[in-house]
C-alpha cells in the first residue's frame, strides 16, 4: 500500500495572532510553528499505524517555502519514509490542491490523508479539491479508518451522529479526532529523519481562485459582569431579561 499524508505548517495553538503591513499579513514575529495538529495527530499517525500493521510506504507532502522543512523533518522523524516539498507559497486551497495533485498523479497512491482542516486558515478544502482533481472518492471528517485488502471502512461525522461507510481504494480522506493518538518522535526517529529523502519540486502552473484582502481581530469584550455566588437567581434574571438568551 502506498500512502500520501498532506502536511501543513501552522502557528502553534498558543500563538498570539497579530497582523502587519496594514493588516494584510500574518505577523510571524515570535511565533512557533508546528505541524497542523489534525495532519500530525490523526492523519500521519493513522498512516504510520497502517504501515506498522499491514506494511505500507508513507510519503509526506507540503506546499511551502524552505521554512517548512523543519515541520516536514519532524513528520519524517515520526516515521514517514520520504517527503516532497512543492516550492511555492500560497494561501489558496485550489492552488495548493493542484500542486499536490500533480505529484500524486505521478506517484499513484492508494490512500491520501489530509487533516480535517488547518488551524490557521480553517479552509477544510484541500482534501475535497484534491479528490476531485484526481477523480477519487472523498470521505470527509473521518474519525475511524480500517483497511482490509482494497476495501476501506470509515466512520465519519454527520449532524447529530455518525455514518459508517465502505469505499474501494484508492481514496482521499480528511482525518479528525478519534482516528489515532498523538505520538512523540524518539531520538532514533529524529536521527533517521536527517537522511530520509526530502525532494524539492517546483510548482506546476495553477490558478489562484481566491485571495485574502485583509485581516481583522475580533473586538475586545466590554468586560465581565460578576454576580455573587449566593445571587444565582440574579444571573438567571440577567440572562433572561438583559441578554435575552433563553
Amino acid at each position: 500500500m502506498k500512502i500520501l499524508v498532506c502536511i501543513s505548517k501552522t502557528p502553534d495553538t498558543t500563538a498570539k495572532i497579530a497582523f502587519t503591513d496594514n493588516n494584510t499579513k500574518f505577523s510571524e514575529a515570535g511565533v512557533q510553528f508546528i505541524i497542523n495538529p489534525y495532519d500530525e495527530w490523526y492523519a500521519l499517525v493513522r498512516a504510520l499505524e497502517l504501515k506498522e500493521t499491514q506494511g505500507a510506504t508513507v510519503h509526506l507532502i507540503t506546499v511551502g517555502g524552505a521554512d517548512t522543512e523543519a515541520v516536514i523533518r519532524k513528520a519524517l522523524a515520526l516515521g514517514g519514509d520520504e517527503a516532497f516539498r512543492v516550492n511555492a507559497d500560497s494561501h489558496d486551497s485550489f492552488y495548493i490542491a493542484s500542486q499536490i495533485a500533480a505529484v500524486a498523479q505521478q506517484e499513484q497512491y492508494d490512500l491520501i490523508f489530509t487533516g480535517k482542516e488547518t488551524i490557521d486558515y480553517n479552509g477544510s478544502s484541500v482534501g475535497g479539491m484534491l479528490a476531485e482533481l484526481l477523480g477519487l472518492p472523498f470521505v470527509s471528517i473521518a474519525s475511524k479508518l480500517d483497511v482490509n485488502g482494497t476495501t476501506a471502512t470509515l466512520v465519519r461525522e454527520i449532524e447529530g451522529g455518525e455514518e459508517t461507510v465502505e469505499v474501494t481504494l484508492p481514496l482521499a480522506l480528511s482525518a479528525q479526532k478519534g482516528m489515532a493518538e498523538a505520538r512523540i518522535p524518539n531520538m532514533r526517529g529524529i536521527m533517521a529523519a536527517r537522511t530520509k529523502p526530502l525532494k524539492v519540486v517546483e510548482p506546476v502552473a495553477a490558478e489562484h481562485l481566491t485571495s485574502v484582502v485583509s485581516f481583522e481581530l475580533p473586538p475586545a469584550k466590554a468586560g465581565v459582569k460578576l454576580i455573587a455566588a449566593d445571587q444565582v437567581e440574579e444571573l438567571a434574571r440577567l440572562l433572561h431579561e438583559e441578554a435575552k438568551v433563553f
Binding site: S125, L130, E132, S140, E157
Partner: peptide, 23 residues
C-alpha cells in the same frame, strides 16, 4: 459549513474551478 457542506463544497469548487470561501 456543516458536515455535508465541508464534504461537497470543496469538490464542487475544484470541479467548476469556482473560488470557494469556507465558513
Amino acid at each position: 459549513h456543516n458536515f455535508a457542506g465541508r464534504s461537497i463544497a470543496p469538490q464542487l469548487s475544484a470541479k467548476l474551478k469556482a473560488g470557494f470561501v469556507a465558513g
